[in-house]
Every structure is written in structure tokens, then in C-alpha cells.
Design a protein around this nucleic acid. Structure first.
Lengths: 336, 336
DNA sequence: ATGAAAGCGCTAACAC
DNA sequence: GTGTTAGCGCTTTCAT
């Protein structure tokens, strides 16, 4: 008892498949009576159209592919949530791919997605090298990037203004009276979240006449554990600081843990501001003040843009999502 | 310049499509010379087989569908990670569906998955009512459940022994000298994570000759905010307790926040043990002692089982995943 | 208002 | 070793 096909419906109704197809699509060209007979047969057989067969004809599969370096991170799953939501609203399914930051795997996925004839692909927070870019372009489907930049190409991107956001975070600390401000940065070779945020921090310092001190910077990889080590390193340096800007919430939480263990109170002894505004930031003790990135919204925007690109090949513009400062409890105003 | 088809390759090579298909599948029936010419043409045209066309013939799409009530939760994304990983290894893609705990949406997704001819579906942590179950069965593809039970059917399930795990958590508290143990439970109508865990807790109490006190139980919905309210309620009751078993880590973190605000120290004043072992549990201050559920592994198992079910219609057995206690820093041994 | 038939890109007999 | 052909389930002209 495999599934019923359009033929079965036609046979049971006593009409041709063409007519069945017509009522399926609400076209014209059949009597009310035929229509109801067909509908009844469909009901009776539990018929469901085969999207694969349709796809073969329409050259549209109504599915998009999404690549993440790490699906299980809170960061990725927020974005995914937004993408899934919007895609569903527009009648698209989404295939998730976990590249695990692995080059070969990424290429393999891109290949599979092409073979599966996806109608578009979204690449999130994963740097795009030449090979990917070539592969992406060869797929002949729209592509949008989230929190990444392509090498020397004009692929559409959705992201916040990282430099400005880092600037704002630092300026916020300064406006709260802090003058000795350390930073835990991401890898310098991460173009967006690494060096860009670092330069925003530096700029804010300099604009306020504060000196940028190399030794007040420690580097991590955005993850919790690296936040811990970076904080230890900062503490070991013995260069005093009253505030800390951390390039990711996860690292910030790590830093808070180390501070706690060292008997350093947040925010009494050191103020901290993070970046991302993940769910955990609300849950930490004390709740983390941070830069909000509208991740879910960014997923939505990317998805909407992608779908729009499918039928209008008109030009599209990069989207800069709005960041904001979420004031919670880890930054203290310094008395003069 | 749409994509090249097998015909194009055949034409360019000067052979028939059948031959091209043969080399594509490493079958026999062509000379070494033909083979290399075909391969060269493929390279030249950038030909990629069309999985849609293949699927139409093979009745296999090499994709599975996964339903979650909430993709963006840490819980779901861990499971998803395991599923995706294993599926990929076996050459399957995964379509994610975020049902948002919405009945109509779930049904809609099931329909879409059927139309897209997925080879199997996994439903995670979402209770299965009669309607879903009927829909699932009518799809004629294997189904496996994670952390759920079907109504009166024998669909395969992957889960931990919730009752035993709750029992173990409570017994652990007792073995640490606690005798007044409160609990924050999930909704009573959640068959697995709600009432079952509650009954495990109760059993452990009674087996140790401790009395079960109705007022020492507060209910939440497994989420952070509800953990906060539940904790407040418990505190308001003024019934003293030295330890607390919480049916989810998220609620446990919420409870810890409330305790902190109330000046109650963890674990000095109150010991807490959670359930799930999410990423955040390692990151909390202090790190949360909890029941570990091997979520990612459960995703892997589900996926493996599902794929196995596709070609062997042999019988399959439910999988009980191993839970364990992860001792971190929120439980204190009580002096006699 | 309705049917016949071609064809989407591919696989799998079956022929030679 | 290689080509021909008949579909897979559907949509879509083009007739009638």
C-alpha cells in the first residue's frame, strides 16, 4: 500500500489526470460536479501531491539550505529559529547543515544542496574562502550571508555594524566613569567579530583621550572556555582595570566565573559588558549587561531577502541590523 | 546558463545517457577510455546529478524531517546536533521544523514532509496526540520519538529513564544528608518529564522514610522564568528545606537567581540539583550539579535507528539512554 | 469542460 | 561495451 498518485485519483474519479491537476491548483476548466468528485476521491485515497515530481517540472523545490559552523550553539539556534520561522511562512522548508568549521565538509554540503536543487542558501557566521565562494556562485541560486563577509564579492550580507557596536560598548563603559578598560577579543583573523570589534574598542578609547594598552587585551575564540583563560591571563598581567569589554557573551560568562573564583566581585570590583545578548546573559548572576544583536530578526531578514531574490533578480542591498545596549547588572557607575 | 544535465554530458562525450549513468554509479559496462571521457565532460560542464530526478525513480530522497517544539532552545539544539551529525554520515539531509508547540502547525509540517517524500521523521520532546499519531502512521515511513511517548502505539522512542533519574537525583540529595527536600516540577500533564519525575522524587523520599509534603512542590513549565516564580512560591511558603530538586536546568538556574536575590547562598543555605545538563549548567555560578541526559547521543541514536528502519523492517526496540549525576558545586554535604 | 501527450532528469531493464 | 526505451508523478500545451 504505497501512496496514492494523481493517476489513482483520476482513475477513481473517472477523469483524466489533467483535470485532477486542474482542481488541485484551483484552475478553471471543470464543472462543479467534477470538482467535488475529484475532491472526494482525494479524500478517500488520502492522496498527497508528490513534491519531488513537482520539483522536477517547476525547477523549484521550495526548500533552502542553511550552513552553520555549529548548530548547537545558542547563537546559531537563534538565527536558525528566525530563518525557519520566516521560511515556513513563505512555504519553504529548511535543510540545516552543520559544517563544524570544517572546510571539506562545507564543500560537501554545498554539493549536496546543489544536487538537492535547493532554491537558495544562507551561510551564517562562517568565514567564506575562495573555494566556498566559487562553489556558491556556481550553484546559480541566491545566497545570503549572516555575520560574514565574502572575500572580494558582493554577496548580500545581514549583520550589525560590529565596529560601531564595539565602539558603543566601550563608550558606554567610559561614560560610566571607567578609564582603565580591558578587552577580551575574538581571534584577530575573524574579520567581523574579531579585528573589527577590537578596532571599535580602540577607536572609542582614543576618541576619549584614553590610551590603548596592548597588555589590556586578551584573545579568545568566542567560546566559554577561552573566556576563562583570557580572563586569567588579564588578571595575571597585574595591569589594573575597572571595566572589561568582552567580544562575546559566552566569553563574558567565562570571565565572570573566573572573577568569582578569584574573589573579584562583579560589578563592584570590575564592570563587564558583553556582546550578543544570548539567552544565558539574562540568566547569569548577576545578569549581564551586553550589546544586543537581533539574531532571530537577522535570520528573518536573511530569509526574506533570499526568498525575494528568487523571483526578482533586481538588485539587493546589504542589511545592517540595529544593535543596542541592554543594561542589566554588570556595569557599575564609577564615582569620580 | 542553467545547469548541465546528464544529456549534456552524454552529448558532449558522444555516448548515451545510459553509459554516463553507468560511470556515475561505478557500474560495469564501459571501456576505460569511455570512462575518462565521460569524467572529463562532467568536469568540463560542472555537471551535478539532480537528486530530485533520482528521488522520483528511487523513491528515496535521502532526507529526513525533524520536529521540535522550539528549535532555539539549548535542549533542542543539542539533540539536533546529534541527529544532523549522524544523518550526514549516512548521506542524509535533515529538514528542521519548529512546531512552536502549535497543533495546526505540527500537522501542516507533517503534511509538507510527506509531500517532500522524506524517508523518515523524528519527533523530539513534543507530546504526540491522536491526530499526530494518525498522520505519522499514514506517512508510511519510519518514525522515531525522542523524549516522548505515543498515545497507545508502539512507535520507537529514545529517552532516559525519567523516573529512575529523578529517583537518583533525590536519593543523591538524601545521601548527602538532606531530609527536607523541595522540588520544582514540570507540568503535571507532561507524561515524561512532568509527572514521571515527580513520582521518582516521591518514591525516593518514601523509600528513605521521608514524608512527601505537597507544599514542598512548585510547578513550572521547564523554562527559566517559571523556575523563578516557582522558587519564589516555595520561599513564600515558609516551609523550610535544605535541598531542592528541579526538573530542568533552566528552571534551576532561575531558582538560583531568585535565591541569590533573596540573599540565600547556594549551596551553603540550600543545595540544588537540576536535570538535563545543558551547556549553561557548566557556566552558572556556582556550576550546577545536575542529572546528565546525553542529548546529543540521543539524537545520534534516534537517527541511526531511523536509518536502520528504512531498509530492515525488522523489529526495533525502544532505547533507554544512560543518565548520570554530574557533581558540580551546588550540592553541599550536610553535617549531621 | 476535458483528454492526450510531451517532457522534467534520471535509472533500469532489455536489446544488440 | 553500449544504446534504446519505458517509466517515476506531475504540469502544461494543444486539441477537441
Amino acid at each position: 500500500m504505497s501512496n496514492a498518485t494523481i493517476k489513482d485519483v483520476a482513475k477513481l474519479t473517472g477523469v483524466s489526470v489533467a483535470t485532477v491537476s486542474r482542481v488541485l491548483h484551483n484552475l478553471t476548466g471543470y464543472s462543479a460536479e467534477t470538482r467535488s468528485k475529484v475532491l472526494q476521491a482525494i479524500e478517500e485515497l488520502g492522496y498527497r501531491p508528490n513534491a519531488i515530481a513537482r520539483g522536477l517540472i517547476n525547477k523549484r523545490t521550495q526548500t533552502i539550505g542553511v550552513l552553520f559552523p555549529d548548530v548547537s550553539s545558542s547563537f546559531s539556534s537563534d538565527i536558525l529559529n528566525g530563518i525557519e520561522e520566516t521560511s515556513h511562512e513563505h512555504g519553504f522548508s529548511v535543510i540545516v547543515c552543520n559544517t563544524a568549521r570544517n572546510g571539506e565538509r562545507t564543500l560537501k554540503y554545498l554539493q549536496v544542496l546543489q544536487e538537492k536543487q535547493v532554491d537558495g542558501v544562507i551561510v551564517a557566521s562562517q568565514s567564506i574562502n575562495q573555494a566556498y565562494e566559487a562553489e556558491l556562485m556556481s550553484m546559480n541560486v541566491p545566497v545570503v550571508l549572516i555575520n560574514t563577509l565574502a572575500h572580494h564579492n558582493q554577496i548580500v550580507t545581514v549583520k550589525v555594524d560590529d565596529r560601531q557596536a564595539a565602539y558603543d560598548a566601550t563608550a558606554y563603559l567610559i561614560s560610566n566613569g571607567h578609564r582603565e578598560i580591558a578587552m577580551i577579543s575574538g581571534n584577530r583573523d575573524d574579520l567581523l567579530a574579531g579585528s573589527t570589534r577590537l578596532s571599535g574598542y580602540r577607536q572609542a578609547l582614543e576618541d576619549q583621550g584614553l590610551t590603548y594598552v596592548e597588555d589590556r587585551i586578551a584573545y579568545g575564540d568566542f567560546r566559554y572556555e577561552s573566556g576563562r583563560s583570557a580572563m586569567k591571563q588579564l588578571l595575571d598581567t597585574n595591569l589594573p582595570f575597572t571595566a572589561l569589554f568582552v567580544a562575546s557573551d559566552e566569553m563574558a560568562i567565562g570571565a565572570m566565573g573566573v572573577a568569582h573564583e578569584a574573589g573579584i566581585r562583579i560589578p563592584e570590583d570590575i564592570s563587564i559588558i558583553g556582546f550578543d545578548d544570548l539567552l544565558i546573559s539574562r540568566m547569569s548572576i548577576p545578569p549581564l549587561t551586553t550589546i544586543h544583536q537581533p539574531l532571530q530578526q537577522m535570520g528573518r531578514s536573511a530569509s526574506e531577502m533570499l526568498i525575494r531574490m528568487m523571483d526578482t533578480s533586481g538588485e539587493v542591498h546589504p542589511i545592517i541590523a540595529e544593535h543596542s545596549i541592554v543594561e542589566r547588572a554588570t556595569v557599575r557607575r564609577l564615582a569620580k
